[in-house]
Nucleic acid binder design. Sequence first.
DNA 1: AAAGGGAACAACCGCGTTCCG
DNA 2: ACGGAACGCGGTTGTTCCCTT
Length: 296
Amino acid sequence: MGRAPCCDKANVKKGPWSPEEDSLLKDYIHKYGTGGNWIALPHKAGLKRCGKSCRLRWLNYLRPNIKHGEFTDEEDRVICSLFASIGSRWSIMAAQLPGRTDNDIKNYWNTKLKKKLMARTKPPPFPSSHQTLPTSYYTPSPTPSFAAFEPLSTLQSDLLNNNNSVFLATNPCFNHTSVPESYYPVKEKLIMFGSEPSCTSSDGSCSQIEMKREDMSSFQGFCASNGYEDNHKFMLSCGGENVSGYNGETPLDYDVKRLISCSGNNNWCACSNNNMNNHALVDENKTQEKGMYYYY
DNA sequence: AAAGGGAACAACCGCGTTCCG
DNA sequence: ACGGAACGCGGTTGTTCCCTT
């Protein structure tokens, strides 16, 4: 048994909205508001539309102060920073960009910004699995090839604290009181990206990774650090030897995240360590689920 | 000028979450 | 506390437009 449909599909119009429908909806909402019930609204407004469709039309196009047209460089920067931090949480991004809707941002990202980003910089070579790389592989890049996206520290903290899904202090997966002293003292916040957010999973399993500080650079696969270590901030993007595919993301998304995460005044490094298991404690059931980690 | 292909954008769908009786 | 209804979100699909051949 599937879920009951939200409306009578046979009797609702689908497809593009006509100007007449737009004005019916706009007029109704201006007069009476949404009434807190989108399902009943179309009938009251004289529309043969699904309530969800009305809601979407209103939120994305008809409500006041919607911005259409080109995104500014500043908006680009915000989107990229947020994407690097929180991934495809379009509604959170929209909340940071007045006048922009989540749908707008999503479309813009998928059709333009992602490509723009990829065109403006090239990622370092992607080391193949089990490839042993010489130390000389470290490749400093003195001048960043892409405008740096600084972490939106204050903004992100507030943002992420509020939605509580990634704040270390409340995240049972990263109970650092149990992390031995010899481990890198993970700072107050550890945010995990890209990987499946199984920390809230009902079976109690976690996509968990703990590493010794010194092993960050010897993790099998690749690492990227953007040199925030001095003030206890750095970004890290890791993929392990068992990475197959790209942590469940499309290769392009994966690369874009890597690019963004390392776009500051940073060094790329890629290195290998065949004894990974001695150094990185990875939930053995979750070795495919390595994501992007952001410490600060 | 017409056809084909790709890009851009609008809208839909399904599912998880929240609300409320 | 529970269950159903409604909401909100993100992924996906459909349509239109525009450029190239």
